[in-house]
Amino acid sequence: MSANVNSRFNRDYIVELLKALLATPSPSGFCMEIMKLIREETSKLGYELEMTPKGNAIITIPGTTGVAGDGAEKVIALTAHVDTLGAMVRSVKPNGMLRFTPVGSYAMHTVEGEYCLVHTREGKTYEGTVLSTKPSVHVHSDMRELKREEANMEIRIDELVHTKEDAEKLGISPGDFVSWDPRTRIVPNGWIKSRHLDDKASVAALFGLMEWMKREGKSPVHTVKVILSTYEEVGHGSSYIPPEITELIAVDMGAIGDDLTTTEMDVSICAKDSSGPYDYEMTSKLIELAKREKIAYAIDIYPHYGSDASAALRGGSNIRAALVGPGVHASHGMERTHIEAIVNTAVLLSAYIIDQGECTNE
């Protein structure tokens, strides 16, 4: 990336906001605290934010051709999700251990040994650790062979708990949310490794875009609505979007591996996922803009993937849709990306929504 673009987008702002996002627990359906952070940051930038009944945030950025309702023929939405994988307490065992049920889709072995927080309905928080029901090689001869599935996993609470009654006295009960320790590391050479980069890296890219626009006094050609959803990991994040939206770009992580070409340095442009092909013209335009901006990008097909654009289309929205985002390795596990991919995602989106020629690397 050229020094010109580096000066346009504030990397320090993007990284610091990403750290704050990653440090705020937000499993799907438990996004109250992170939405407070989103409101505060949006207010600092001077944009308008409204909340939908189910907890999504919509930030409106008026375009130079008029705002929605004032004659604008096109309204573009950029959507990313603040919700993450997590769990809920399914039951309290007789020995005080907690059986849990997943929130979102992940393999159980990816959370074994992970530190976590249990969030009670009374507002209390307790630390814990995810273990198998046979956690020690010194005790269990079949520990290695035990299948890592829900029935064989549990949470050990870091409190003096020996019975079900002990745990219940703490206020812990079925339905309490569990969040994973993100274990965030920002490496000086630009690597960022953490849980929940899917999709908080994309949220940081969107705020980096908005911060640049506000600082430089830029406006999109058409009104833009930034939608930050809270139920994407369970399939219905942006299933409802405002009816005036005509184009929607889901900003979500790019998968890496197998025959896919995306890397952690790239902006992923997804042509098709499990919901079917994305809009041909929008995808083609994004590819051409990536070429024009000299952005490292890759075009891929994700057979085991769905996005907020998928949810909007399945929800009946009469829109064109596309999908882009930073490449993320080991998705739904111990994830990693690079600041280049996050910043370049913001660059590509700026090129899409701002007047042609405004965001060139040349």
Rank of each mutant, 00 (worst) to 15 (best):
M1F: 02
S2K: 03
V5Y: 05
V5I: 15
S7Y: 01
L22A: 12
L22I: 09
L22V: 13
S28T: 15
S28M: 14
C31M: 05
C31K: 00
I34N: 00
L37T: 04
L37W: 06
R39P: 05
L49P: 04
T52D: 14
P53A: 13
K54Q: 13
G55F: 01
G55A: 01
I59Y: 01
D70S: 14
I76Q: 09
A80L: 03
D83A: 09
L85N: 07
P94F: 09
N95R: 10
M97W: 03
M97P: 02
L98Q: 00
G104Y: 09
G104A: 14
G104H: 11
A107R: 12
Y115S: 15
H119N: 00
T120M: 05
E122C: 08
G123P: 02
K124Q: 12
T125R: 13
E127S: 13
T133N: 14
K134P: 00
S136V: 04
D142A: 14
R144M: 10
R144P: 06
E149I: 13
A151I: 09
N152I: 06
N152T: 07
M153T: 02
D158N: 14
L160H: 12
K164E: 07
L170Y: 00
G175C: 08
V178C: 14
S179D: 06
D181F: 12
D181G: 07
T184D: 11
T184E: 07
I192C: 12
R195D: 14
R195C: 11
D199V: 10
K200Y: 13
A201N: 10
V203I: 15
A204K: 06
L206D: 00
G208Y: 02
G208V: 02
W212Y: 11
M213W: 02
R215Q: 13
G217H: 14
G217R: 11
V221N: 07
V221R: 10
H222L: 08
K225N: 04
I227V: 15
I227F: 08
G235H: 01
G235T: 01
S238F: 02
P242S: 07
P242V: 03
P243T: 12
E244L: 10
T246P: 15
T246M: 14
I249C: 06
I249S: 04
A250T: 03
A250D: 03
V251L: 00
V251C: 00
D258S: 10
M265W: 05
D266C: 14
I269S: 03
A271V: 02
K272W: 05
G276L: 14
P277E: 09
Y280H: 11
T283H: 03
E293K: 05
K294C: 11
Y297I: 01
Y302E: 06
H304P: 03
H304A: 14
D308Y: 01
D308W: 01
S310W: 01
L313H: 09
G315F: 10
G315M: 10
G316Q: 11
G316P: 10
G316K: 13
S317Q: 05
R320L: 11
A321V: 06
V324H: 00
H329M: 11
A330M: 12
S331K: 06
H332L: 10
R336T: 09
H338C: 10
I342G: 12
N344I: 04
T345D: 07
A346N: 01
V347E: 03
T360M: 11
T360W: 04
N361Q: 06
E362W: 04
